[in-house]
Design a protein around this nucleic acid. Structure first.
Lengths: 343, 343
DNA sequence: TTGTATGCGTTATCAT
DNA sequence: ATGATAACGCATACAA
């Protein structure tokens, strides 16, 4: 039925017995073409199975209707749901979504930068705390871009995410209300804005409760399960233990729970543990993890909406959209163990 | 430093005081250009920050150096590692990788089909059991394609994955060796080839051991955690219980373990549970899950290598590459409970 | 060794 | 309402 080569606009024009200009018009501005010819064209399109060559179109137009989403780690349990939010919003505005995976590798980032420089994508969503393109980016012109889930460190790029500081504050306040005073913060040493903001919430809560500095413990991890496990190993070598582990994210909390479990402790009886993100796994663990919910699809939706606005207006309506973080109380928090509280 | 518009080959040519043809040659066939001019050109490139417009190049060439990876569910815990294997192999051959996420939606699939029809990708990797493009695909010309992780049902497309039948066979044989006879298979009702192959391994093992049909139980699930949980609910309503749950994948096994745990049973003392895939989470659970390892990055590597071979030769060297599935023995399997064995 | 000119498939401008 | 044509940025056949 179809030739070996995909049909072009010329094939359609020939069959419909019109010019290629008319075919193009019949497709994009049908009101400017007579009913009779429009019919002929659409029949010809059906016969040939014509699909407009998006590449040629973009070359001519100087823009495309694809959005590139760049992520350093596509396995991040937060990524998939945010992506769905991004995609649904893009789609309802006639845009498609393509994903670039950099594996935290600048060379790979450059590849996607070339993609962008060829106008193969009209806009950019950054699921990463730093621009993933290496140093050349500083001078390079980026298309309209929006950061998501985590503020972009070195970009001055509009951002959509949850209010990390307030979320962390809600967690400490819960811990404080349960009677904890010695709360360790298992964090992330990388210069990630989202994590430092969560740390700010931790400090603010402790300040407000009048908890002195020497009761606070900070562990610099890297946000992985292994990092959480390592944290309890390290902390158990110190002379003074916390009664609660407040973790920068759920992955870390899972690691902490594994580490504590391996030492034979019961959560929450012996220690309380909290996370941040409400990753799917968080509700399946035992005990189920008390954490902060990320409104992931909503974040994606807002981020894409903001990007599309940028695409048409050129000006960002706002530079940062912070969504409300909800506390999800499950079973990993209880009053501090008597065993540790006095000592 | 740079103009508002990206530099074109003409900008480079003007500054280097040569023709655009020479610039093009200096880039792609440097041996065909004099040393002196080559130097001028590369200086001009440095000055302008020129990057070749990949879109225009592909339009002219009729092919691109991007590979599209299409996945229905990017959150699949198997996806990320396979992707890494795909990317590394592609990269070492000068190809880039772009990901399309269909969410199991044919309309979204069509979008990526248009992308392919515009020659914006030279080849296609399918991380999905069925062609995700709806019915139009039958007539559409696809670029060279390779299925990965799961055979493509309706395509006649070369495939790279683990030997599902043999893997499942290893699992039953372990269960049988532990003394189990009543082994339930918690499967997947969808017409997925990978799953039906695993089922074949189950049956083959039981046949070989002479386990009669009325001792076998099949539960048709859908491969999700929830499906595993549901399976134990259903099975407990029957009069006769298995001593082991052999699950079609790790997700299902996790659900089964959650369901069993909720009923107060201990694994593996009361029941044995096995999975398939060796998802990262499998080793973190308690008890750690006995399962079959998927050599994920290796699968990705082979699949991409096969695709690139297709791209140059046009003929697939082989139509199916089956990798060896290794049994990972952890703590979720033991001898059948006396409580259940006699009945 | 280098330059000129054509075409890849579109869309938009300008005529008609 | 429709058609001829230029241009988007590039690679290459053909000339020089």
């Amino acid at each position: 039925m179809s030739n070996s080569n995909p049909a072009t606009i010329e094939d359609v024009a020939r069959i419909a017995e019109v010019s290629i200009a008319t075919v193009s018009r019949a497709i994009h501005t049908p009101e400017k073409v007579a009913n009779s010819t429009r019919l002929k064209v659409s029949q010809a399109i059906a016969i040939t199975g014509y699909t407009t060559n998006a590449m040629a179109r973009s070359l001519r137009l100087g823009r495309s209707n694809m959005i590139l989403v760049v992520a350093p780690d596509i396995g991040d349990p937060n990524f998939s749901n945010i992506l769905v939010g991004l995609e649904n919003e893009a789609r309802s505005h006639g845009y498609g979504v393509l994903i670039g995976h950099t594996q935290n590798d600048a060379q790979r980032g450059l590849e996607y930068l070339k993609f962008l420089n060829s106008n193969q994508a009209a806009g950019l969503i950054l699921f990463t705390g730093i621009l993933p393109f290496g140093h050349q980016t500083m001078t390079a012109r980026l298309p309209p871009s929006v950061g998501v889930f985590e503020p972009v460190f070195n970009g001055g790029i509009p951002y959509v995410g949850v209010d990390d500081t307030e979320g962390a504050r809600k967690v400490v306040d819960l811990l404080l209300a349960e009677g904890h005073r010695k709360i360790a913060f298992i964090g992330d040493s990388r210069t990630r804005l989202a994590y430092s903001r969560r740390r700010m919430g931790y400090d603010a809560g402790l300040d407000a409760a009048g908890v002195p500095n020497d009761l606070r413990t900070i562990f610099e991890g890297d946000g992985t399960i292994e990092s959480g496990r390592l944290a309890v190993e390290q902390l158990f070598m110190r002379d003074t233990l916390p009664t609660a582990f407040m973790c920068v994210n759920d992955q870390t909390a899972i690691g902490v729970m594994i580490g504590l479990g391996a030492r034979g402790y019961d959560i929450p009886r012996d220690f309380s543990v909290t996370g941040f993100d409400d990753v799917p796994q968080a509700s399946f663990m035992s005990p189920a993890l008390t954490t902060i919910r990320q409104p992931r699809t909503l974040i994606g939706k807002h981020a894409m909406a903001l990007l599309l606005e940028l695409l048409s207006d050129g000006q960002p309506a706002e530079t940062e959209i912070l969504l409300r973080p909800d506390l999800v109380v499950r079973n990993s928090v209880a009053a501090p163990s008597r065993q540790w509280i006095k000592r």
